[in-house]
Design a protein around this nucleic acid. Structure first.
Lengths: 196, 196
DNA sequence: TGTACATCAGTGAACGCGCGTTCACTGATGTAC
DNA sequence: TGTACATCAGTGAACGCGCGTTCACTGATGTAC
C-alpha cells in the first residue's frame, strides 16, 4: 500500500536487519539493546520508539532472520538446480555447505538458535516454532511427490543437527568431515540420482 | 586414592551437580553464580573458594553433565537391551524418548546446549567439542561391527537435531510426532530387526 | 513563495537492578602437646 | 583426656559495571495560510 516507506519505517527495517544478524551471531542472550542500536548507527535512547521491549525486538528479528536466510540460501539452491541437481540434492548441499558452516550470521536461524528457543519468552518461542515448521515445509517441497510424509521431519532434523554439531566441533577438518558424512548419508538414502 | 572425600570436596561436588542441571535447564547464560550457590544451599561468597571463575564452573559443569546423563540414559538403554532390543534400537528409543523430551535437566548436554557452544569461552568450547565426540563414539559402539564409519556421525546428528526441534515445537503432540518420525526413519534405515 | 508553527525521529543523561567478583570476618574442625 | 591454637569452609556486605528502560530535550521535516 504505502509505496514510499517513511523515514521511521526505514530505520525500523535497518534495526531489524542488524538484529536479525546479531541474534544468530551472538545468541538471544548475547545481544543488548544498546549494541544493536549502535551497530545500526543510532543511539540506544530511540529504541523504544520502535519496539515495545527487548523481547518484541527478538520476536521480530527472529522472523526477519527467516526471510534473510530464505534469500541467501535460496540463491544457492536455485543455482544448484540449474546445474542439474534434484531439488533435494540442491537443498542438502546448500544447507550442509561449508559456506553455511562459516556464515552463521546469514544462515539458518533454527540452526543458530534452536537450543535457546525453549528458554525464551512465549512470543519468541511461538515464532521459533513457526520457523521450525517452515524449515520442515521447505524440505517437504524438495521431496519427490508421494514421498513418505514423515521423511521431511527426519531430514530437517538431521540437517539442523549436523550443522550444529559441525559448528560445535569448529570450522576445521573435523567439522567439515561431519558435514560431509551427513551429506553422503542423506543423499544416499533420499536422492535417487545420487553418485559417490 | 583419597577414599574419604573432604568436606570441601563434597561441597564442590554438590555445586557441580547443581550447576550441571542448571545449565541444561536454563542455558549457559541463564545461570548466575548466586543462583547456583543458593540452589546448592550456600551463599555466593564462598564460590571463589571452589572455582576460579564463572567460566571455570561452566567448563566443569558441562563435563559433569555428560556423566550424569550417561547414568540416566544408560539405565534406559540397558533395560531396552535386556528386553531384546538391538544396541542401536535401544539407544535410539532411549534418546528419542518422551522422557528425554521433557527431562532436559537430566538429558543429553549436547542436545540442551549445542547452539550456544560456539559462543562460549575457549575452555568451555573445548569441553563441548569433547562431548560431541563422545556422543558420536557412543553411537558408533551401538552400530553392528563393520558398519559404515560415517554412519555414527549421521545418526548422532539426526538424534540431536530431532530432540532440539521437538523441544522447540513443545512438549505436545507436535513435538512428539516429530520424535516418532525420527525414530521410525532411523530404525527403518539402520536397524535390521526393525518392525512397523 | 515565504513565514510560523506543529509534529516527529532521534539524542543523551539518568534510573534501578542484577551480576561477577572481592574481602574482612566467623564459627567449626582438626592438630599439638 | 583436656586445653590452646591454627587451619579452613563458608558468610554476608560491598565493589564496579553493564543492561533494559525512561524521559526531557533538540533539531529536522512537514503543514497551514
Amino acid at each position: 500500500m504505502q509505496a514510499i516507506p517513511s523515514r521511521k519505517a526505514l530505520t525500523h527495517e535497518r534495526i531489524l536487519e542488524t538484529a536479525a544478524r546479531a541474534i544468530r551471531r551472538a545468541g538471544f542472550n548475547g545481544v543488548g539493546v544498546a549494541d544493536i542500536m549502535k551497530e545500526a548507527g543510532l543511539t540506544h535512547g530511540g529504541f523504544y520508539a520502535h519496539f515495545a521491549s527487548r523481547d518484541a525486538l527478538l520476536t521480530e528479528a527472529l522472523e526477519h532472520a527467516g526471510n534473510q536466510n530464505a534469500n541467501h540460501m535460496g540463491k544457492g539452491i536455485v543455482r544448484r538446480q540449474t546445474d542439474g541437481a534434484t531439488p533435494l540434492r540442491a537443498l542438502v548441499e546448500a544447507y550442509l555447505s561449508e559456506r553455511h558452516l562459516t556464515g552463521v550470521e546469514n544462515g539458518c536461524a533454527v540452526a543458530a538458535l534452536v537450543s535457546e528457543m525453549p528458554r525464551q519468552a512465549p512470543e519468541v518461542r511461538a515464532v521459533g516454532a513457526q520457523r521450525v515448521r517452515s524449515l520442515v515445509a521447505l524440505v517437504e517441497r524438495s521431496l519427490p511427490p508421494g514421498a513418505d510424509n514423515t521423511a521431511a521431519a527426519a531430514i530437517a532434523s538431521q540437517m539442523v543437527g549436523a550443522m550444529q554439531l559441525a559448528r560445535a566441533l569448529g570450522d576445521n577438518a573435523e567439522g567439515k568431515a561431519l558435514l560431509a558424512a551427513n551429506r553422503n548419508a542423506l543423499l544416499a538414502q533420499y536422492d535417487t540420482t545420487s553418485q559417490t
